[in-house]
Amino acid sequence: MPEDIKSEDIDAIKEILNIGIGRSAQMLNCFTKSHITLSIPEVRIFDTENLKKGNEKYLDEESAAVRLEFMGIFSGITAVAFPKDSVAKLVMAMTGEAAGTPELDSLRIETLKEVGNIIINGVMGSISNILKTHLNYAIPYYEEGSIIDMIKAEKKIYDNKVLMAMACFTIKDLNVEGNIFMLLELGSLEILIENINKI
């Protein structure tokens, strides 16, 4: 952890993300009619150059992700990613499809886009509410691959160092897992922390 980021600040970022995730969980709960088990978010600072595979399963595994870029007093990306083998089950449960082959085809990807969009908007909506700041957003889009590759391919992050906040959620009834990621440019972190401390 770089010297200039205090553990209290990390703690505050965690809590802000927590509130956003809690709101998304309620929406997901309404859609799936199942309880969502949440984990305590993890906040870390990565050097994208040193980031490599083989350390963390959730960063390596093939995922289906919906991501949203945001720009404002702080900038970054929020993404929700599901391991590929569980995502088709989730979509099928939500659309009430009769049991068939759980494969992620283009129609199910469309549905996943909406599900991911609802989750991400829940997170971002409550964060910008709490911080009382306006952010600009790009169009959300769908992507497949490992989280590591997605982070590495990210051109928007000019900085080598990036802050990643991550929380995982589980829908036990459906045997589905997912991860919510937020990547922040370190350059914008100071402003974020300043805003948090105004609360």
Partner: peptide, 12 residues
């Protein structure tokens, strides 16, 4: 006092 605002969480 929680950010997990699910109705099911409240019920539990």
């Amino acid at each position: 006092l929680t950010s997990d605002i699910q109705d099911t969480t409240k019920g539990m």
